[in-house]
Amino acid sequence: MSENVTLTIDGKDITGEKGQTIMDAALANDIYIPHLCHHPDLAPYGSCRVCTCLVNGRPQTACTFPISDGMEVENDTDTVNEMRKQIVEMLFVEGNHYCMFCEKSGNCELQALAYRFGVTTPRYPYQFPKREVDASHPNVWIDRDRCVLCARCIRASKDVDGKHAFDFAGRGPNRHISVDAADGIEHTPVDADDKAVQVCPVGSLMLKRQGYKIPIGQRKYDHEPIGTDIETGASKKQ
């Protein structure tokens, strides 16, 4: 029998289980906390900072921070959302994100977050980093231009697929996804049906020859902002 913990999110009393993160407790209560690196099937990682909340007045990442009795969490407020908007803008300028022709457009979590936060044009200067494409695999390709360094593929490959095909290389602005083979993804054990390929939130790790098959109007975020399924409880029914 797990131990119950009570806390408030935006003044609303909610109950969670001891040991849960704020993110998991919120999800269980149909409260959407915007997130990018968090994935329900993967261990918490805490790299993107999009889930930042004010916890008892201090900024913390909800996906990694455990709940405790009496905790007060500020989530959907102007102050918090403005911080998140800035974080999303930084993610945009740190990569090369050309949504207008990206095959992930409409299904991309980063793009959907930008729409949710009303990002029109980033306030920071574009960095235009030089990033490499690796299309050597017959069925999977990496476009590092679009990578947000969320490590979902790294975690999924290691913990779910049992392959450890991906990891980070480089530091600071040069940090990038590398593959566990000297001459490209072709020489890794990655398969098209790997969890690692399914969990990429952006258009960075993709199946080949599938682009644009879903028509405009039927893509995941064409009609409702990201998080709507959580707020309406629809995500639980699926």
Partner: peptide, 14 residues
């Protein structure tokens, strides 16, 4: 150059 071929019809119309 370097882009995957299925991207081209959407990219090039720009």
């Amino acid at each position: 150059l370097g882009r995957p071929y299925w991207e081209v019809p959407v990219l090039v119309q720009r």
